[in-house]
């Protein structure tokens, strides 16, 4: 029985995009996502698409991998697109298929919204593909740290997140072992009706839960033994630092934004 889990979507390679400070990547991708909502003409959408294609190229992540990463939302994308196509009415009627009419406004909405959604997903995916999970949690901590003054436990939150990420492969291995052990005792995970199968989850979940308790206990002891205390005054093995590369990236993004605004106003 195959039981595989991949951690996040991180695609490990060396590229300019991978080397950027994760905080920059998160901020820029957020800004970019907002920008996508202002792209309401064909020219602006092409401009957005070009930026994404350039980023994919620079990130050295094969296009195939990007497409694979967005596959889960593809169905939703198509469904939402068709909804727009059939139900948005206005302007000239282009086609009449029985009860369904396709209008100019509908066709317009189909393109704009489908691509808008696609751009959003690709932008988010690119961050996930080019930033390893540990860096992401570090960035999260760093970005949330101003809120610490308001009582938000930023360090603890990101610590929880990185421990959770760290244990995904451990538990997937453990689950595989437990499945093997229980199927050796006659549990059949490959046939039987739905109720039988659901019942068979108990012999997997309970030992897995017990093992996660064991791991948590051990890890807590190990951290305690090394005098781990929470966030205040704690330094990092890898400090996040904005360097020349990040500044350059930000300047390019600013220029990109200005051109976008110019296109929006004058076209």
């Amino acid at each position: 029985m195959a039981f595989k889990v991949t951690i996040g979507q991180f695609y490990n390679t060396k590229s300019i995009i991978h080397k950027l400070d994760p905080r920059i990547k998160i901020l820029v991708s957020f800004a970019f996502m907002v920008l996508v909502f202002f792209a309401d003409s064909i020219v602006l959408n092409v401009y957005i698409a070009l930026a994404l294609l350039a980023l994919i190229y620079l990130s050295k992540v094969p296009l195939k991998v990007v497409l694979k990463a967005i596959r889960p939302v593809f169905f939703f994308l198509v469904l939402a697109g068709l909804m727009n196509l059939f139900f948005v009415q206005g302007g000239n009627v282009l086609a009449n298929l029985g009860p369904i009419t396709i209008s100019e406004a509908g066709l317009n909405a189909f393109f704009i919204y489908t691509f808008r959604f696609l751009f959003l997903v690709v932008a988010g995916t690119l961050v996930a593909l080019t930033t390893n999970p540990i860096q992401l949690t570090d960035a999260l901590e760093s970005m949330l740290s101003p809120l610490q003054k308001l009582g938000l436990p930023a360090h603890e939150l990101s610590m929880m997140l990185s421990i959770a990420l760290r244990f995904i492969p451990t538990f997937s291995k453990e689950a595989e072992r437990i499945i093997k052990a229980q199927s050796s005792r006659g549990a059949d995970f490959e046939s039987g009706n739905l109720i039988e199968r659901v019942k068979l989850f108990i012999p997997i979940i309970v030992p897995l839960f017990a093992s996660s308790m064991r791991h948590a206990d051990n890890l807590a002891n190990a951290m305690d033994a090394r005098c781990y205390t929470g966030g205040e005054g704690r330094t990092h093995y890898r400090e996040l630092a904005i360097d020349k590369r990040d500044i350059t990236a930000l300047i390019i993004c600013a220029i990109y934004l200005l051109v976008f605004i110019a296109l929006k106003i004058y076209l």
């Binding site: 437990i178 052990a181 229980q182 199927s183 050796s184 006659g186 997997i204 030992p207 017990a210």
Partner: peptide
């Protein structure tokens, strides 16, 4: 075969669940 061969995994106590 599963009935014929008992498989004792490493740390078999980790499979207890009931």
């Amino acid at each position: 075969i599963r009935k014929l061969v008992g498989f004792v995994a490493q740390n078999p106590e980790h499979q207890l669940f009931a």
